Amino acid sequence: MEVEQRDNECIWYDPALVEGDPRQYFDIHFWHQQAAVTGSAKGRGTTFFIRGPKMEMALRHYYRGGLFGKFVKDQYWFQGWEATRCGAEINLLAYLREKKMPVPRPVAARAVKNGRTYRADILVEKIPGARDLVAILSENSLLAHDYRAIGRLVRRLHDAGVCHTDLNIHNILRDRKGKLWLIDFDKCQQRDGEQWKEDNLARLHRSFKKEKEKRQIRWQPEDWAAVLKGYNHIRK
Rank of each mutant, 00 (worst) to 15 (best):
Glu2Lys: 07
Val3Cys: 01
Val3Gln: 08
Val3Asn: 03
Asp7Gly: 10
Cys10Phe: 03
Pro15Ser: 07
Ala16Ser: 15
Ala16Met: 13
Leu17Cys: 09
Asp21Tyr: 03
Tyr25Pro: 13
Asp27Val: 04
His32Thr: 01
Val37Glu: 03
Thr38Asp: 01
Gly43Tyr: 12
Gly43Arg: 09
Phe48Leu: 01
Phe48Thr: 00
Gly52Lys: 06
Met57Lys: 03
Leu59Met: 12
His61Val: 05
Tyr62Glu: 08
Tyr63Asp: 04
Tyr63Trp: 10
Leu67Asn: 06
Phe68Gly: 07
Phe68Tyr: 14
Phe71Asn: 03
Val72Gln: 11
Asp74Val: 12
Gln75Tyr: 15
Trp77Pro: 00
Trp77Val: 11
Gln79Val: 11
Trp81Pro: 02
Trp81Cys: 12
Glu82Thr: 15
Thr84Pro: 14
Arg85Phe: 08
Gly87Met: 10
Asn91Ala: 15
Leu93Lys: 05
Tyr95Cys: 04
Arg97Ala: 12
Glu98Ser: 11
Val103Gly: 00
Pro106Met: 06
Pro106Ala: 10
Gly115Asp: 03
Arg116His: 08
Thr117Val: 15
Thr117Asp: 03
Lys126Glu: 00
Ile127Phe: 09
Asp132Ala: 10
Val134Pro: 01
Ser138Leu: 10
Asn140Gln: 15
Leu142Glu: 03
Arg148Pro: 02
Ala149Pro: 02
Gly151His: 06
Arg152Lys: 15
Leu153Thr: 10
Ala160Glu: 05
His164Ser: 04
Asp166Val: 07
Asn168Trp: 01
Asn168Glu: 07
Asn168Asp: 09
Asn168Phe: 12
Arg176Trp: 02
Lys179Gln: 14
Leu180Asp: 07
Leu182Arg: 01
Ile183Trp: 02
Asp184Gln: 12
Asp186Thr: 08
Lys187Asp: 06
Lys187Leu: 02
Cys188Ser: 15
Gln189Glu: 14
Asp192Gly: 05
Trp196Ser: 07
Trp196Leu: 03
Asp199Cys: 09
Asn200Phe: 01
Arg203Gly: 07
His205Thr: 00
His205Val: 00
Phe208Ala: 12
Phe208His: 03
Glu211Phe: 10
Lys212Asp: 06
Ile217Pro: 12
Glu222Thr: 01
Ala225Arg: 02
Ala226Asn: 11
Val227Pro: 01
Leu228Lys: 12
Gly230Arg: 11
